[in-house]
Amino acid sequence: MLELRLTRAGLLKKVLESIRDLVTDANFDCAATGCSLQAMDSSRVAMLSLLLRPDGFEHYRCDRNISMGMNLANMARMLRCASDDDTVTINADDAQDKISDYEMKLMHITSENLEIPEAGYEAIVKMPASLFARICKDLGTIGDTVMISVTKEGIQFFTRGDIRTANIFCRKTTPVAKEKEAISIEMEKPVSLTLALRYLISFTKATPLAKQVTISMSYGRPIVVEYKMEIMDHIRFYLVPKVEE
């Protein structure tokens, strides 16, 4: 039996809103250790992985591992019936008494999970999630791709389009900066990657979930954009860089 209860439906709504542009159908793999999801977009250029920890739920019971294939648009439609502070219960198997009861069809989705090594990255930048979202949105009005470069001084975003170029540089802040404004850099060597802006803009739908975003980069490897949720662990987005032929 699987039974998950969350007293703030708003959190689940925000998680869904942040992933449903990228992926239409996905398997939620539930186990005693938590609910996880890994899915690629249809072009297999971007990927997301999500972990919802058991202690993030008010009630979490998962007697056996279960994979729930769900259409994310349908799930979002159902959750729209709940207010942000309503309690939402997801159960598979026997139902219990509830004030309202929604049933949703599960789907069989064949998915192959990729093994993502927890290897170190050449540069890791933490910056305000809202600032990253604004930069991606602004640059998206000018170009299709952005070159993100990290040096020990800061992080630079450069784009080129029909109407010319745009360059935004965010300097690393001092250690005393307030958390919501802080920009920190851990770096082994400078890294520069060229990325499709439309995917980055889609990743920033997760901005309401976290104050800060962590951007991990290594030369020639997918960039990782991670949002750490306060009570629910994390959501990570991966994007393959563009390479010069």
Partner: peptide, 14 residues
């Protein structure tokens, strides 16, 4: 010229 690689070029399937 830019080329776009896919995710499985970097990670292996479980």
């Amino acid at each position: 010229r830019e080329t776009q690689l896919r995710m499985e070029a970097f990670y292996t399937f479980n």
